[in-house]
């Protein structure tokens, strides 16, 4: 679902490894420049590998953590049809997590290691999921805005230079587009509904707008890994370009819904044919990223509880498999 600020965390690439001669690096870059796909067994610079493991595993973790805010409304979905659609969406997210962990495993890091890094707090996930889903309209808004922003980020990843990631993204993007439409459809029903439903929709937009546009990550001037990721064609557009594109597409949708985007400075600029928008509160972004969002601790606790609570089950499965392998031998 949700790549965001994915190039923000993790250690700086270390110095050149001895096997990374200038010639090899030049040849690698030439393959990238020729739009060739890099495959799992191909030679690649360590920094390229690390960047991808970080980005793909953060993307996988985001899918898994993202199941929680939406899961929060599964038991209370207002109709059986909405409940089924939301459940199918949450199930897709678990599935996206699985393909993404598999794509990352092709780079030599095990899923167990990636999950351990998530649970220890070493690995990050998209900050958007550290906001709470307080009403049913939040479910519509997540689909409409959060999945909408995710699609903007992810469509270019289908052309990412790393083959296994690019191919996983093709399938994920198809499903995300369905998720975005279901979100917009919830918003449409609310905006055509009673005064209470319209107020619920507006309130949700007020709370989710700014966190959604923060999903594209810091402004280009502050984005420390962007230039290298662009050169490696892991990233195709800058954070600010994608953010602008998202705002340009989304504001008319809000107008169509009869909702007001909570930005007094929002204005269409005839000359540039883009919307101008107000200043983003980057302090909030960095606070949530640092662990101080409304639900950071709760989200992690749910994952840790599931992992710890399931330890006896995994041990039993292992013991059973070993016992029966021994018997078969």
């Amino acid at each position: 679902m949700y790549t965001q600020g994915l190039d923000q965390q993790g250690k700086e690439p270390q110095g050149l490894q001895p096997r990374e001669s200038a010639e090899r690096l030049t040849a690698f870059q030439a393959r990238i420049d020729a739009e060739e796909k890099i495959e799992a067994k191909d030679w690649m610079p360590e920094a390229y590998r690390r960047t991808l493991v970080r980005q793909i595993s953060q993307h996988a973790h985001s899918e898994i953590i993202g199941m929680q805010p939406e899961g929060n409304w599964l038991t209370r979905a207002p109709t059986l049809r909405r409940k089924c659609i939301l459940l199918a969406k949450v199930q897709d997210e678990a599935g996206h997590g699985l393909y993404l962990y598999s794509a990352a495993e092709t780079l030599g890091t095990s899923r167990d290691q990636m999950v351990a890094d998530l649970l220890s707090g070493k690995a990050k996930y998209s900050s958007i999921f550290n906001y709470p889903t307080l009403t049913w309209a939040d479910i519509g808004t997540i689909g409409w805005l959060v999945d909408g922003a995710a699609i903007m980020n992810q469509i270019p990843l289908c052309r990412c230079s790393y083959g296994p990631y690019a191919r996983a993204m093709v399938r994920i993007c198809k499903e995300e587009s369905f998720h975005q439409r279901q979100g917009f459809d919830i918003m449409l029903a609310l905006s055509r509904g009673s005064a209470a439903q319209k107020a619920m929709a507006q309130d949700a937009l007020n709370r989710w707008w700014w966190p959604s546009i923060m999903m594209f990550g810091p402004s280009d001037k502050d984005s420390k890994h962007s230039a290298q990721s662009m050169a490696w064609k892991i990233k195709r557009f800058s954070n600010d370009e994608l953010r602008q594109k998202f705002i340009d597409v989304t504001v008319p949708q809000a107008d169509f819904l009869g909702l007001k985007v909570p930005d007094d400075e929002l204005e269409f600029d005839q000359e540039t044919a883009h919307y101008r928008f107000g200043e983003i509160d980057w302090q909030e972004f960095y606070d949530v990223l640092a662990g101080n969002g409304p639900c950071n601790r709760e989200r992690m606790q749910v994952r840790r509880n599931a992992h710890q609570g399931g330890a006896w089950v995994r041990e039993a499965a292992q013991a059973y498999a070993e016992k029966h392998a021994a018997q078969a031998a």
Binding site: L74, T75, L87, A88, V90, L98, G309, G310, R314
Partner: peptide
């Protein structure tokens, strides 16, 4: 079953649980 949609011992079990609930 959907109360425990994000509370499985493994991701595969969460996926199966969501599938069965559906």
């Amino acid at each position: 079953l959907i109360e425990i949609v994000a509370d499985g011992p493994e991701l595969e079990e969460e996926l199966a649980n969501a599938n069965f609930s559906l």
